[in-house]
């Protein structure tokens, strides 16, 4: 086996995992703390990508646009939380699913009206477009940066959740919501904060991926299911679980795509392997989830009751 390709694939898997973590962290927190099944979570992923891409084309600076886009995505999330989302927290899950699906339709259409249906291809600044060569191994700088940003956010979230008072409330909220509100904590403020922070994380993921793919309508709907799979495998409400599951799924999905046909070709003819491998590799993450849920119905790291 060629090691340089294997390393390249591992980097790609890691990058996908990190992006999934950015999405899933917000999802798992809103799910765990506010008990909100938010299908429209990935709409902020799309929104972040569109805002950042159009700002980059306009200002010419990726970094400036990134900062502005984070602020704007956060503002959008805040407005939506105040106007609508906070009224959904106490509803049954299925009602939440219906309402947040309605939000997806609205946000997708608004983006269509505002930016047109074509989507935006966004350039990457030259200083991020390079590669690092270590012997045979070629590492694209931008992908390394995505991984670095993702890991940084993961560390920040870890510190926030494990070592601050807010984090304590968040953890308490994930395990016992009624207790937290009984303590006299301003639960509304906490909820707004968590929702905005989670949405910004999703938006950041969109901003990170836009220079690789492009900003397009419905890009969120493609990844939201995978993000939910991450949340479920990791255990609802668990940041640690989301992190582990995101990296696991990123790796399995990428390596499955890359090597499954080779593996299959070892014990069946090439034709069958070429047909079966893409189908099975697309199924892998669902197989993984079904197996994990069959063995551990609460996921890998269910939050403990405190």
């Amino acid at each position: 086996m060629d090691y340089s390709i294997l390393v390249a694939q591992a980097i790609n898997g890691l990058q996908l995992g990190v992006l999934l973590f950015l999405l899933a962290s917000g999802l798992t927190l809103t799910f765990g703390i506010m008990d909100l099944v938010n299908l429209s979570h990935a709409s902020f992923y799309m929104l972040g990508a569109f805002i950042c891409a159009s700002l980059t084309l306009w200002t010419g600076s990726f970094l400036l646009s990134l900062v502005l886009a984070i602020v704007l995505t956060g503002l959008a999330a805040l407005v939506i939380e105040l106007g609508l989302v906070r009224r959904l927290y106490t509803l049954p899950h299925l009602d939440q699913v219906l309402a947040t699906f309605g939000m997806i339709l609205c946000l997708d259409t608004l983006v269509h009206i505002f930016w047109g249906p074509a989507g935006i291809v966004m350039p990457l600044p030259a200083w991020l477009n390079g590669q690092i060569n270590i012997g045979e191994i070629v590492l694209p700088v931008y992908r390394l940066m995505i991984i670095a940003v993702g890991l940084l956010v993961a560390v920040l979230l870890y510190v926030l959740v494990s070592h601050t008072r807010t984090g304590m409330l968040i953890r308490a909220g994930a395990s016992n919501r009624t207790m937290v509100s009984a303590l006299g904590v301003d639960i509304k403020l906490l909820f707004s904060g968590v929702f905005v922070a989670g949405s910004v994380c999703a938006g950041l993921a969109g901003m990170m991926i836009a220079p690789i793919t492009e900003a397009s309508i419905g890009m969120g709907n493609e990844i939201i299911i995978t993000a939910f799979v991450v949340v479920i495998i990791g255990g609802i409400g668990s940041i640690k679980g989301a992190f582990v599951a995101a990296l696991l799924i990123g790796m399995i999905d990428t390596l499955g795509r890359a090597y499954l046909d080779t593996v299959f070709a070892a014990f069946m003819d090439t034709e069958t392997a070429e047909t079966a491998a893409p189908a099975i590799s697309a199924m892998l993450i669902y197989l993984l989830m079904a197996v994990i849920l069959a063995v551990r119905p609460q996921g890998l790291f269910p939050p403990r009751l405190r």
Partner: peptide, 27 residues
């Protein structure tokens, strides 16, 4: 298999099985 789970987990595991069916039909 699915009925070993409840709530959102049940939602997701049934979705997983239907996705497997989808990719089977696609192939």
């Amino acid at each position: 298999i699915s009925l070993r789970t409840r709530g959102v987990h049940f939602i997701m595991i049934t979705m997983a099985f239907s996705q497997m069916m989808y990719y089977t039909l696609v192939s």
